[in-house]
């Protein structure tokens, strides 16, 4: 099943307003700080002697930040996985089917033999299926996979 991810909300997180308060304000006016700032989507930097000791974040900002980091981390892994292929293609001048090379304006002449040679030797790793869903784990032992939970139940057909 294809999963189409919503756009990354990094800009939204970066634009979160930050209000600076000190320890005393947090201690004495906790209710107001939560009501006026955190519940309104404002982050709070808690200072002590003009140095920030920590931040209080609205829950949605924290969740969005965590999700964004996870997705950026995933994208970085994707870039790492695909970069060697793109570099090999660019270096050898072989027209590998690639939207990234196309977007970069790297236009190469199709030569079926060169492409056949490159794909056979390079060792490309499939990361997604045709629809863009993550590729399921490779089946390295089909027999074991198929008969892992074999039972000996007989099929009984009533007449």
């Amino acid at each position: 099943m294809a999963t189409h991810e919503p756009p990354i909300r990094a800009g939204e997180i970066l634009e979160t307003p930050v209000e600076r308060i000190n320890h005393r304000t947090l201690k004495n006016e906790q209710g107001r700080v939560f009501r006026e700032y955190l519940r309104s989507g404002v982050a709070v930097a808690v200072e002590n002697n003009h140095e920030i000791d920590g931040y209080l974040l609205p829950p949605e900002t924290f969740e969005a930040a965590r999700e964004t980091l996870q997705r950026l981390n995933h994208q970085l892994a994707q870039i790492r996985a695909v970069l060697p292929l793109l570099l090999a293609a660019a270096r050898s001048g072989v027209a590998v089917p690639s939207s990234t090379l196309e977007d970069l304006g790297i236009d190469q002449v199709f030569d079926w033999r060169a492409l056949n040679e490159l794909q056979a030797r390079f060792g490309v790793e499939l990361t997604h299926d045709e629809d863009g869903a993550l590729m399921p784990p490779r089946i390295t032992n089909l027999r074991q996979e198929l008969f892992a939970e074999e039972d000996d139940a007989e099929l009984i057909i009533g007449d």
């Binding site: 994208q75 994707q78 870039i79 996985a81 695909v82 292929l85 793109l86 027209a95 590998v96 089917p97 690639s98 939207s99 990234t100 090379l101 199709f110 079926w112 492409l115 056949n116 794909q119 490309v124 790793e125 499939l126 990361t127 997604h128 299926d129 045709e130 863009g132």
Partner: peptide, 16 residues
């Protein structure tokens, strides 16, 4: 090219 390689790179994803 896509048929010859049997895969394509699309938005940093390598797909059949």
């Amino acid at each position: 090219a896509a048929v010859t390689a049997g895969f394509e790179e699309k938005n940093l994803q390598v797909r059949p």
